[in-house]
Structures are given as C-alpha cells and as structure tokens.
Amino acid sequence: MTTEELKIKISELLPSVTFEEDGQWLNVIADAKDWLPFANSLRDHPELHFDYLFCLTCVDWKTHLTMVYHFESTQHRHIVVVKSKLDRNKPEIETVSHIWRTADFHEREVYELFGVNFLNHPDLRLLILPEGWEGKNPLRKDFEDPVNMVKL
C-alpha cells in the first residue's frame, strides 16, 4: 500500500489521528487514550495487517514523553510509525503485549528506563536493571548518577 492509501485507511480507523510525512516512513500521531482499540485494528485489519512490531521505544522530550512504535506488515510489506504523547509526570499507556508478544519485553525495558506505566501489562517488573532501581529512570534527560555515570 502506498503512503496515501495508508493515510486514508488509517484515518478511517481512527479519525482523530494526524500525520507527519517528513521522515522515512509515514508517522501517525495517535492519542494515548485511543491506543488499545487502534492497535487492535492495525493488527487485525486485513488490508493493513501490521503483524511485526520491530521497534518499540520511548523518547524524553523534557516537556513530555513520546512512545514510538515501528510496525511492518510481513504480508504487504508496508511500514508505519505510530507515536503517542504521554504526560511526563504520570506517563501511562495501555499495553499491547497481548497483541504483539514481543512488546512484553520491550515494554518492561521502557518501564524501567523511562518509567512509563503500561496499564494491564501481565508482568511489569524490572528486566535489565538490578533491584533497587525502581523509580529511577536512567534514560530520562534529567537523570543524574554521580557514581555510575561518566560524563563524556
């Protein structure tokens, strides 16, 4: 599907989305509260069929956090990037680990590094960091650690 067709299809699914096209792929900006039904339809719509979540990450923009999901369809071979703005003081978004199972580990990683709370995640615990790191989020821009961090 071309970018234009993707835009039409996606705005049919969720009229409130906005698009950005300056990047490599089509960027879809969706609201966090619409995320779960929207994610379901991205996966299940036969013409979209985004079944491969190849990158899930988060960016700290100092004023807010942005979740970034990279999707690819292994059937149609189109790629879309979905972004969702989160409140920096209380970042919350629905989990998608039951739709794409790879999100289970990736969301746990984002949880510990950025402090994003994934609602209804089956097992939201620290994955990489050792215990005692709850609440400290090393990949946030204001994170300071005088012991372990070497400033270059």
């Binding site: 190849f54 990158c55 960016v59 990279h70 199972r101 790879t102 289970d104 580990f105 990736h106 990683e109």
Partner: peptide, 28 residues
C-alpha cells in the same frame, strides 16, 4: 534484523539513539 534509530536535534551528538537488537526479541 538490527536497527539503528537516531533522533537528531541538529547537533553534533544524537538526542536519542535506540538500538533494536535481534537477540533481545529472539530471547523473548
């Protein structure tokens, strides 16, 4: 599938960089 995701603000260092490592997903 190894992915490099750079977000640049126009400076000499990346604002945010993400490495999508294949082993992480395979292990899951």
């Amino acid at each position: 599938d190894f992915g490099v995701y750079i977000i640049s603000e126009g400076g000499t260092t990346p604002y945010r960089i993400k490495f999508r490592s294949p082993g992480f997903s395979n292990l899951s």
